[in-house]
Design a binder for these strands. Structure first.
Length: 350
DNA sequence: AAGCGGTTCAACCGCCAATGA
DNA sequence: ATCATTGGCGGTTGAACCGCT
């Protein structure tokens, strides 16, 4: 019964690693690199299973690992990402430089879960426990669910993209901007433009940030990738607050156009064309500051400020000096209001 | 100081998806 | 197309540690 073991275990050592074993493994990897884990133990002179070696290297011996206590910012990020992704520790770890999935998992199970529980938040659903949710809180929760659905779709797209990444994939879209101002984009499958290679870095799951965001640092129309978000919803735990991204030129944002503004996603990698497919289905607007991709989708006219204006956002003053943006986030709200309140809220928790 | 229960975290296990023959 | 192998992931375990009585 059961599966056969991953490797021949007779005579193999288990349990904690000794400094000598660590040294052997390190020395081998430094010389030859982490090649075949199955073959490595014998070649390195270790009485260990290959999996065990891999685990030891990945979680403890790798030089780019940060040990020690998690900072507030790191905990915020974990909670935020967990709210959308669940126990996908490796994906979460990809957003915490130098932290391993195992470490994050342990920290979640031993600290964060309890912390949330103490605060009356269900660590599985990330919702306030049963009693007394205000209408605003209910609205937040509903919108968070909406965001989570989007994120699920996004991850599906991401997986497909990775599978296709070695191919030159024809881009099926050409965009047209609806000049009547309905802020709907129409996509047509007419062009074939090779997509650039996928980035080596993990894709960013910044949907979460968008979901809780209001502008702290106002963006220029063509400079959205430099924005910093912070929490706006007072119903959210202060821990679920901010992420910061600053890689101009690699981001785009997707917004629902119309009377209300709702930022529905934020990509570090705008080449996620499957998402655009989804947008087509939803009739949503889209812009990017990524030149390559703008060209790839065939029409640069969708870039702001036209889009912003058509979306009814033309009266937002985005200067670069202070908080001047809109109240956005998981509550699909109006374009202004509560900015001071938001700022104070954020200041109080940071 | 000893005993005991709770907590932490390194490590293992089984499953699954990707890959290559 | 199929199958074996491999790497990677999330869940779980258990030894070590901690703090209280």
């Amino acid at each position: 019964m059961g599966r056969s073991p991953c490797c021949e275990k007779v005579g193999l050592k288990k349990g904690p690693w000794t400094p000598e074993e660590d040294h052997k493994l390190l020395a081998y990897i430094e010389q030859y690199g982490p090649g075949s884990w199955r073959a490595l133990p014998a070649q390195a002179g270790l009485q260990r299973c290959g999996k065990s070696c891999r685990f030891r290297w990945k979680n403890y011996l790798r030089p780019d690992i940060k040990r020690g206590k998690f900072g507030l910012q790191e905990e915020q990020t974990i909670i935020q990402l967990h709210a959308l992704l669940g126990n996908r520790w490796s994906v979460i770890a990809a957003h915490l430089p130098k932290r391993t999935d195992n470490e994050i998992k342990n920290h979640w199970n031993t600290h964060l879960k309890k912390k949330l529980t103490k605060m009356g938040i269900d660590p599985v659903t990330h919702k306030q426990k049963s009693h007394a949710l205000s209408p605003n809180q209910l609205k937040d929760a509903a919108n968070l669910n909406h965001m989570a659905q989007w994120e699920g779709a996004r991850l599906e797209a991401e997986a497909r993209l990775i599978r296709e990444s070695k191919l030159q994939v024809p881009n099926p879209f050409q965009t047209q901007f609806d000049a009547l101002g309905s802020a709907q984009l129409v996509y047509e499958a007419t062009t074939t433009v090779p997509l650039p290679p996928l980035p080596l870095q993990p894709l960013c799951l910044d949907v979460l940030t968008a979901s809780h965001g209001s502008w702290l640092k106002a963006p220029k129309y063509n400079d959205f990738a430099t924005c910093t978000f912070a929490a706006t919803s007072s119903s959210l735990d202060p821990l679920t607050s901010a992420l910061d991204f600053s890689k101009k030129g690699e981001a785009c944002m997707i917004m629902k156009a119309g009377a209300d503004l709702e930022i529905i996603n934020y990509f570090q990698d705008p080449k996620e064309r499957m998402e655009i497919e989804l947008l087509q289905l939803q009739g949503l607007g889209y812009f990017t500051d990524h030149d390559d991709y703008s060209m790839a989708i065939g029409n640069e006219n969708i870039l702001l400020p036209n889009f912003m204006e058509a979306a009814g956002l033309g009266d937002i003053s985005f200067d670069n000096s202070n908080i001047t943006g809109g109240n956005s986030g998981i509550v699909a709200g109006t374009c202004c209001g509560n900015l001071e309140e938001n700022k104070n809220y954020w200041n109080s928790i940071s």
